[in-house]
């Protein structure tokens, strides 16, 4: 099972294990990590599951599809490394992924 590291804006670190096929948003929610709201439940309609990919990982990420990219344009505090975590699917390839959580989603 792939493991993720989620780092809150205040520095708190969470190690989260998710199931393959589950979204990163869901894995984070199931681990009760604060800082991911996921209001629309993963329908790519709310942009409240926003996170920043760690620089080390940025090059290894699958590209965002157009809906995600469009939604991201309006995510609060958007950066080049922004992703919507409901659109990132847990896989062996993402094992070890490090994400930083924005301050806005509290």
């Amino acid at each position: 099972m792939p493991t993720l590291t989620l780092i809150e804006h205040n520095g708190t670190v969470h190690q989260v294990t998710g199931e393959i096929g589950q979204s990163v948003m869901q894995a984070a929610m199931f681990a009760s990590v604060p800082g991911i709201q996921g209001d629309c439940g993963g329908a790519c309609s709310c942009a409240t599951c926003h996170a920043y990919v760690d620089d080390q990982w940025q090059v290894r990420m699958p590209e965002a599809e157009s809906t995600e990219a469009d939604m991201l344009e309006y995510a609060v505090g958007r950066r080049a490394t922004s992703r919507l975590t409901c659109q990132l699917v847990m896989s062996e390839a993402l094992d070890g992924l490090v994400l930083h959580l924005p301050e806005s989603q509290y």
Partner: peptide, 12 residues
Amino acid sequence: CNRPGDHMAARK
């Protein structure tokens, strides 16, 4: 419809 960027802009 299939213009999520417009939707987010509209919300603002």
